[in-house]
Write a protein that binds this DNA or RNA. Structure first.
Lengths: 186, 186
DNA sequence: ATTACTAAACCGTCTAGTTGGTATAGTAAT
DNA sequence: ATTACTATACCAACTAGACGGTTTAGTAAT
């Protein structure tokens, strides 16, 4: 609950979550175990379970952080497109496409949760539905918005599953194409 | 290996694969076990292992059937768009979007393989790359084709993960929008 | 005889979760 | 300044059950 304020040593919570994401990306969601996670972080199983009382809690935390990061990124893009009539749509799309190379494993949490306990996705579903309503409201062509939304997430998931390496190089071009399609709508 | 040709009783191979897909969809890839599969199909573990010598073989078969079904569907659509200049693109997209309500769990195999053993996705990656080359070759605007390709697969995966229920109702409208966008390119 | 199984026991390994204990650092009264 | 206490952040060892897979023995249709 407290990363900096409290007494004692600094928390490894985020270190653990990072390692969990990487593990899912490289080995598959089924091999995300406390043992493997312990090896990856050099933290004992007991230590891990101190931070996340159960595996479901860990998955929950992964999803939560993923949504939070996405939300923050969207807000950042909102400022970039301040005077654009398609500010909302563009921000949502670019946030999800997430041009930042640094956090590549955006969908690890999603896939891990889906694999281990699909019920954990409920809050995620709510978040998606909210985004859809937002698209419906702020877009001149909601159906186009939906297509582009799915395109971004399709690309992200395909990358995560390593079904294509369109990654770095084409990413910029892909993003530009999306923005152009938004601006070209008449 | 033989569903109809061989002697003896008809094989339960496809029954097992169907059940496996449904299990993944409803319970998550991590809960696809021989025990659970045996319960779902009323086939003993011995029986299951008679058909699929290992779990990897089972996952392999799931992927294989998925690709084959997709391929067949694409061929069917190719006939529907015989004189269309965008025959290839349209067929690929509609095949993957897969309007058939009957086989809803198209991506179960994908998610199960990704969760349990990502290395099994290698042939799938090859298939995707081949599709990309095909898109590059037969499309006037390859980047648009890519966007629409990812849109279709994004929608499919979101549906599979139950992140949205855009399913039946909007599916037709979604498909129509895709086709319109293809035809509108200048 | 071959194909397609069933039923049940069994094995080694893996896994989530428990227990009980330790170390570090800050708080606060004396 | 020392003592006592609290909270955080762990670790090592263990347990019960699940899982993949094997084996054995038998059945029943073609």
């Amino acid at each position: 609950m407290c990363a900096k304020k409290c007494a004692g040593r600094p928390s490894n919570r985020d270190v653990i979550l990072d390692a969990a994401e990487q593990l899912v990306a490289s080995e598959g969601a089924a091999r995300l175990t406390f043992d493997a996670l312990g090896q990856a972080t050099s933290i004992s199983k007991g230590g891990l379970l101190y931070h996340f009382a159960s595996k479901d809690k860990l998955l929950e935390a992964m999803l939560e952080r993923m949504v939070a990061r996405n939300s923050d990124l969207k807000d950042a893009f909102m400022k970039d497109f301040e005077d654009d009539p398609n500010q909302e749509l563009k921000s949502i799309l670019l946030a999800s496409l997430n041009s930042d190379a640094e956090c590549a494993q955006l969908s690890s949490g999603l896939l891990a949760a889906a694999a281990n306990n699909p019920e954990l996705l409920a809050p995620m579903t709510a978040h998606v539905q909210q985004t859809f309503q937002s698209l419906e409201q702020f877009s001149r062509d909601p159906m186009l918005a939906k297509v582009l939304f799915f395109a971004v997430h399709g690309a992200r998931l395909f990358e995560q599953l390593q079904l294509c390496e369109h990654c770095q190089g084409d990413r910029k071009a892909f993003a530009d194409k999306l923005l152009a399609m938004i601006d070209q709508q008449n």
